[in-house]
Write a protein that binds this DNA or RNA. Structure first.
Lengths: 216, 216
DNA sequence: ATTCCAAGTAACTTGATGGTTACTTAATAG
DNA sequence: CTATTAAGTAACCATCAAGTTACTTGGAAT
């Protein structure tokens, strides 16, 4: 039961490391090829681990997929909590996050495409996190920083749309913008646009394209 | 060379009909399962056509996929042309279209996920159509119906985002809204929201949540 | 030292799947 | 009427991929 005390820096047998390697290899493979397209052999190879180990630790391909998703999910949730409800901040933050980590967006896309009628992977948890996010928006509305004429749910949906779309549809974005989403120029331009556009969520009276926040 | 003159209402051999059946079956199968997940046998079965015919008409699975995409593409382009550049109209129209025909959105999603670095399917055509769309936005800006402070490309990208997102990520939408996107109540609410929100694209002076269009 | 189990390996099984071969038949052109 | 070709069929095949079997081995507990 006692921990191995780590004889040499790395012992030959190392369950945790193996598990980690499988998970990170699986993340890449699933993000790249989706569930159906992902190859268990490829994951094993990427992880430099015998394929059998994958079944040893995760049972089967689907369990592994769910675990990968669940993991990324909780990682993101932590980020979300640390965020104020300010539209300009949220928009730029999440847009940036989507550009930095397209794998995340891609996983959500694969999830969306995967016959959506059944129950979600980590539903309970995600629902709770969503509700906390909605609550933050309501608070902003109460403080007059977000227009109260919009349903918070619709505000959140609009924000998600604006931030995730480019990473979710890079081909359409390139068609429209003439640049790949990885291009820093695009990212800067888009961030600037989102900052201005965030004014759309502010209450009508205090209206005038962002520029600054008089309530400071 | 002369057309068969259609002896009986339907002759036993009927290339066009067979081609159509394959294409429509392929659309469903590809939209449902993506390229990797789609099963050639399933397409053949759905089309009630011998699998060999599929190779007869389209060469292989990938060619068939490209053809399906190309077809849907041109269908949509026609719609787009018939549209004015008014934000409120565009937003509600495309949102409605995405809800009515989720297969279309799903195909675009599959395309996005399919290792995006290579050249797009119907690129030349799509680029041209995109440019015509941008031109329409510029015209609206010149007429003062769309704020000139936004880059037309960013306006288009924002509109696409707002309209396609719910159909592209039904699971996230349900999480936020508490209803499936197929629910008419959701669709009505969202349409109403988009109508109000369209004001965000209008010039600052003429500002006040849509409601009506004084320039009539 | 010995025992025992989790960690690890190699080779195999089984089923699915894209694509092909070899054939038949409808319908049109001459 | 007949030759030709496109439309259509059934059975097959090679390959690939998920999951398994049967085995070996490191290392902690006794």
């Amino acid at each position: 039961m006692a921990r191995p005390a780590r004889t040499a820096s790395v012992s030959l047998r190392n369950p945790e490391r193996t598990r980690e390697r499988i998970l990170s290899a699986a993340l890449k493979e699933f993000a790249a090829n989706g569930f159906a397209g992902a190859r268990v052999d490829a994951i094993a190879q990427r992880a430099a681990v015998n394929k059998r180990m994958l079944y040893h630790y995760f049972g089967n391909k689907e369990h592994l997929f769910r675990e990968v998703l669940r993991l990324k999910m909780t990682e993101r949730q932590a980020w979300a909590e640390s965020l104020s409800g300010d539209p300009a901040e949220s928009l730029t933050f999440w847009f940036d996050a989507a550009c930095r980590d397209p794998d995340w967006v891609r996983l959500l896309e694969w999830e969306a495409l995967q016959e959506a009628n059944r129950r979600l992977i980590d539903e309970k948890n995600r629902r709770a996190a969503t509700n906390r996010g909605l609550e933050r928006i309501r608070q902003r509305q109460a403080r007059g920083q977000v227009s109260a004429e919009f349903d918070p749910r619709h505000v959140m949906l609009a924000m998600r749309s604006l931030t995730m779309f480019p990473a979710a549809f890079p081909q359409l974005t390139r068609l429209i913008m003439g640049r790949p989403i990885s291009d820093p120029t695009f990212q800067k331009e888009r961030t600037a646009f989102l900052k201005k556009f965030a004014a759309a969520f502010q209450p009508s009276p205090a209206r005038s394209p962002a520029k600054n926040d008089p309530a400071k």
